[in-house]
Structure formats: structure tokens, C-alpha cells
Design a protein around this nucleic acid. Structure first.
Lengths: 232, 232
DNA sequence: GAACGCATAATCGTATACAATACTGTGGTG
DNA sequence: CACCACAGTATTGTATACGATTATGCGTTC
């Protein structure tokens, strides 16, 4: 079962590839909070050994996307209400100021890329692929940190966005799935105008909207089959 | 070589223990940036297998304390000048506001613990153990985030403090090793007065002092023997 | 004498084997 | 009928073995 592995798959490391696949599955809510991630099962699905799978799961555990329970296995994390609040608290500290920096150093190319991303998000939403739309909506925030030229903050934001995806899966009260799009559009305009103040305010408001659109009182777990969610 | 392992050492997981030992060695500058962390060597030192060591190294890599170079091995990270700036940029966003929250919800017990920590830091410094003093000085910042009751932010601050330790090892220009102590004392007083505004300002200034006390222009690597630094 | 190439050794990457622990179902007993 | 004990099964934790890649040292050649 290592015939194709020596082909050329070893550059970005098999473990990272598996981690990325799982991460995306979680982002798109194909894997829902609480789902069991059996080592043997994943190993078989991707045709690698458990060693690789364990490394990937450890990576995701460090991002708090999966929880490693000793002698029990790996599970998609189920952020508590408290953790949900903390995540958005952290985002409130990091993202508005970062949006300001981004606005100030935004280039035309950056703006185009951002605009293209929003359009893709709209397309996904129109196509009914809300999973992908949600994923792209998160990428938007990460991209801003990248444009602000702050790799360290970008890494934090990336982790927080991932965790937000789990939080949304658990606590989202359905209504106005695209209120975000408006917020993102408004941000783009602020960026176009190089208006740091406005970008900061808009981001602050956007995050506030997000957290208030959650129902942070009760819980709602969901099992779901792993092999099915992974597609094959 | 697993006689003592089944004793009762398995609770906090061997990998985490090794990771903690290495982390502390890095914090206290017994392991300096660029040092090679050979898997076999560490495995032998702690009497565990390479499997455990690899897990520990991966953990540290996620915290950016060590750099994993493919087919080359693990090395203590050498933050670039740019990364150094980014780390303090992130701290500037997170810590002042967190200090304010901490001040507002500080209890007498918290204050006592914090005070005790400062005294211990002074004692270490007086005893000439500057490595431990530096470690405790970092713990002070982490403790504040914990008191603010923000576990998520505390985790970020913890990582940033760790990385700051590496940055100090590389870019510190010796002078006024205890200017920090003054800043920490001033913060304690603000906490005692429940003065959130002052705590936020003091923390902002403290971080600014820290970053300006660095020489962010040149580099200075250092090898050093591993087995020696680990003590046994 | 310097530079290149090859053989050797060391180290990492991955797979697999075995041990330890937790889960499941069955049979018995109160 | 409910509950507990126990055996069997499955899954994770750890160690080790093997293959691949990289570093090193020596000998040859120009």
C-alpha cells in the first residue's frame, strides 16, 4: 500500500495532506462536532498507515479542531458555550485592528483577489453549496490578516476562524445566512477607499453581529457517519 | 526500558512530559536557538522511544518553538527579525485589553499569587539564576490572561511569551535586566486598585519598552551541546 | 593541492507488531 | 426482570524494524 506514495506525494508530507482533507471536511460541516475519528478507518480511507493519521490528528488537536481523549480516540471538537464566547472575544481583539492595517496597505491586486473571493462565495451560496460558502467566508477573514502582512496574527485568526466554523455548526440559529455577505461587501468598500477607521469599525460590528446571531444557551450534538462524510 | 513507565508516569502522557521538559529548557535558555534536537539523543536521555519524542517535537513545532526541517531533523527555532516584530505586534493587540479585564475581576487570592510570583522572580534574579527569572517573568503575563478568565487568549499569550523568550535570546541587548520588574510592580499596583484603564496603559507601555529594548537589526546564532543543556 | 565522486555512516520517515486499555455482549444470579 | 461478572473484541499507546534521504570521509583525478 505504498506503491503511489513514492510517486511524488511526499513533498507536502502525507500527514499534512490528511490533516488538510480532514480540516476541510470539518469546515464544510461534512464532519460534525462529536464525530469519532477512528485511526484505522481514516488510515484505510486515505491509504496510509496509522502513523500518518496520528500525526495529522495531533496537528488538528493543536488547532483545537479535534479533541484527543486518552485511550478513547479522536473526536471532532464540540466547543462549549464558554469557549464560543472566548473565541469571539479573541477575534474582537485581533481582527478589527488588523483590518485597519490591511486597509492601509491594501494593493490593487489584493483588492481584486478579495473581490474575486466574495464572488466565489456568492456563487457557492447560489449553487446551494452552503458548506463551501461558509468555508470561503472564513477565508475572507484570513486573507485580510495576510494582507495586513502579519503572518503570526494570520495564523491565530486562521485557527479562530476554524473554531468559529465548529461554533456555527453547534450554535447557529438559522436566519439570514447571507447577512455576512453584506458585511464583507461593506468592508471591501472601506478597503477600496483606504479607510482604516471605517474598516476597523466595520470589522468590529461584523464580529458583533456574528456572535449575536448565535444562540449561546443550549447544545445540539450530532453523530454522523465518517466514511460517508469523507466522500469515499 | 519501560520498567518505570508503567509505574504511574502515564497520566499526563509521556510525550507531554518530554515536551514540557524541552520547553522549559528553551525558556531558560539552556537550549539556544539553532540547537539540533536529535530524536535518538532525546529518546535516550528520557528513556523513551522515538515515537514519543516525535510527538513532543511536533507539539513544540506547533508552538513555533522548534522548527521541523524535512529529512534534516528538529532545531530550536530562530525567529527572524520580522517574526520578532510580529510577535510583539500580536502581544500588543492581546495583552493590554486582557490586563484591563484582569484588573476588573482580580480577586485577593489572584493578587497574592501574582505578588508571590514577582517575589520569586526577584529571588531568582538575586540568586543569579537569570534563566529562571526570565521564565517567571513570562509566567506573569500568562497568569494575567488566566485571571482575566480567557483560556483561549491565555493559550495565545502563552505561545507568544514562549516565542518572546527565543526572541530575547537572539536580540536582547544587555542592559537593565530588571526594568521589567518595575513594570510588573506598577501593574500589580494598578491591579490592587482595580484600575483597568491604568493596567491597560501600563501593559501597553511595558510591551513597548520590551520591544524597544531589543536590537532588531542583526542576528547571532549559537550552537551548544544538547545533552549538556538538558542536565543529564 | 584542490575538487569531484563514490562509499559509508548517521538520521529521519513510515510501516508494522505487540502490549495495554476500553468497549460489547453474553451468561448467570439475586 | 434488572443487575453484575466475565470473556471476547476492538481500538488505542508504544516500541521496533526497515527503507529513504542526507551528511561525511576518503580516495582518485586533473
Amino acid at each position: 500500500m505504498n506503491e503511489q506514495s513514492k510517486a511524488l506525494a511526499s513533498q507536502p508530507s502525507q500527514a499534512e495532506q490528511v490533516a488538510q482533507e480532514l480540516e476541510r471536511a470539518i469546515h464544510e460541516h461534512r464532519l460534525t462536532p462529536g464525530a469519532k475519528l477512528g485511526e484505522d478507518e481514516i488510515a484505510e480511507v486515505y491509504g496510509v498507515s496509522r502513523t500518518i493519521v496520528r500525526a495529522a490528528l495531533q496537528t488538528l488537536a493543536h488547532q483545537r479542531l479535534v479533541e484527543l481523549r486518552r485511550n478513547k480516540g479522536a473526536f471532532v471538537a464540540q466547543p462549549s458555550v464558554r469557549e464560543a464566547r472566548e473565541v469571539f472575544e479573541a477575534r474582537a481583539l485581533l481582527e478589527p485592528r488588523t483590518a485597519r492595517s490591511a486597509a492601509e496597505r491594501m494593493t490593487k491586486a489584493d483588492l481584486d483577489a478579495l473581490t474575486r473571493q466574495i464572488e466565489e462565495e456568492h456563487a457557492a451560496l447560489a449553487a446551494g453549496d452552503s458548506g463551501r460558502a461558509l468555508f470561503l467566508s472564513g477565508q475572507f477573514h484570513i486573507e485580510i490578516a495576510r494582507i495586513a502582512d502579519q503572518a503570526t496574527i494570520a495564523a491565530f485568526v486562521s485557527e479562530l476562524v476554524s473554531r468559529s466554523s465548529l461554533i456555527i455548526a453547534l450554535y447557529w440559529q438559522r436566519r439570514a445566512a447571507l447577512c455576512e455577505s453584506h458585511a464583507h461587501h461593506a468592508l471591501i468598500e472601506a478597503f477600496r477607499d483606504r479607510d482604516g477607521d471605517r474598516a476597523e469599525d466595520l470589522m468590529k460590528g461584523h464580529l458583533l453581529d456574528l456572535v449575536t446571531s448565535l444562540d449561546l444557551r443550549n447544545v445540539a450534538p450530532m453523530p454522523g457517519s465518517l466514511r460517508e462524510a469523507l466522500g469515499k
